[in-house]
Amino acid sequence: MFHLIKRDVILQKKQLLIFIPFILFFIFMDVHPVLTFLVASVFIPFNTYAYDEMAETNILLNSLPYTRNEIIAARYLGAVFYMVIAIGLTSAAFFSFGKLFSITDIALGSGLFLLFAACTFPLFYILKPGYITTVVLIGFILLSTMGPPVFLYLAEQFSAITDFIMNLSIPIVYTGSTVLIMLIYLLSWGLSTAIYQRKVF
């Protein structure tokens, strides 16, 4: 399964050359660190899915000595692995150019990435090839532009819930959020596995 994760980097050698300039552009444009960490985390996993969609790689993967469970596991574990690397490189870039960011920015960026991945990964096994990348791209734009205003609106409408959360201690909020995000990610993993097991290539 490690070789399936490693394959993503091998396939994207050319795209990885633009990763650092891409992230530096966001940093120099003073984009919020949360969005910068989110975009950095999305880069490798979703480039891989876009490549696989064009090349119909699933036919090749299913001819190799890997089970379908292992193929999906490599997708989900690989996304987390590359997210950690992307956050490390982005943090180093922030440090190098004296840009301020916090642990909270990293936590929010990685949390949003995992939620976005959990919602979109199953779509790659549900929608027809040719439409998936467009749907995911539109979804990402909507999340990054409309997400914060919608969140603030909901916070105002459900003030009782907002007040309850605000009264919780920071460790409880972080722990609860982490557990919830992990649960959603695992549920998405299970859903993708169930769908992929029934796919015909």
Rank of each mutant, 00 (worst) to 15 (best):
P149Y: 05
L115N: 11
L127D: 00
S102K: 10
L77D: 01
L61T: 04
A107C: 07
V39K: 08
F116W: 10
A107V: 14
Y125L: 01
M54L: 15
L77V: 11
A92V: 10
F101S: 02
D163C: 04
P45N: 03
I72L: 02
A74Q: 01
S110W: 05
F37N: 02
L142D: 09
P149L: 05
M54K: 15
L137T: 12
S96A: 15
G109C: 03
L35I: 15
A40G: 00
A74E: 01
A79Y: 04
S144W: 03
V84G: 06
F81C: 09
Y49V: 00
Y125I: 01
L64G: 08
K128Q: 04
L60E: 15
M146K: 11
E53F: 00
G109I: 04
S159Q: 10
I85A: 12
L100F: 12
A107F: 15
G109N: 04
L64T: 10
F95T: 13
A92R: 06
R75K: 15
C119W: 08
E53S: 00
L142V: 13
G147L: 01
L100Q: 12
L100T: 14
Y125C: 01
C119F: 12
F37Q: 02
I71Y: 02
Y76V: 02
S110N: 08
A107H: 10
V150T: 07
L152Q: 13
G139K: 00
A117D: 05
V42A: 07
E70Y: 02
F94I: 10
T104V: 09
V150L: 14
L61K: 07
I138L: 06
L100D: 12
I59R: 15
A107D: 06
L35A: 14
P149M: 03
S91N: 09
L108N: 11
P149E: 03
T120E: 04
T104H: 09
E56T: 05
L100S: 14
I141Y: 09
L142Q: 06
L64P: 09
Y51P: 06
L152W: 10
L137N: 08
Y125A: 04
Y153D: 04
V34N: 05
L38N: 08
G139M: 00
T36P: 01
V150E: 03
I59W: 14
V31C: 11
T134S: 05
Y49R: 00
I103L: 13
I161V: 14
I132V: 14
Y51I: 15
I161C: 04
T120V: 09
A118G: 08
Y66E: 01
I141E: 07
I132T: 12
G111S: 05
F46A: 01
T57Q: 11
L77F: 11
F113T: 02
F46D: 01
V80K: 03
A86V: 04
Y66R: 03
L89H: 08
H32L: 13
I138F: 04
N69I: 11
G147H: 00
A118P: 06
L123H: 00
F94C: 07
L152I: 09
T36A: 05
G88P: 01
S96T: 12
S110K: 07
F97S: 10
E70Q: 13
L137I: 13
Y153S: 11
V84W: 06
L60R: 15
L38A: 12
V31G: 08
S110M: 13
S91P: 07
P65R: 11
E156T: 15
N47V: 04
S144G: 07
T48H: 14
L143W: 13
F124R: 05
L64E: 12
T36F: 02
T133C: 06
Y153E: 11
L64Y: 12
G78D: 00
L100H: 13
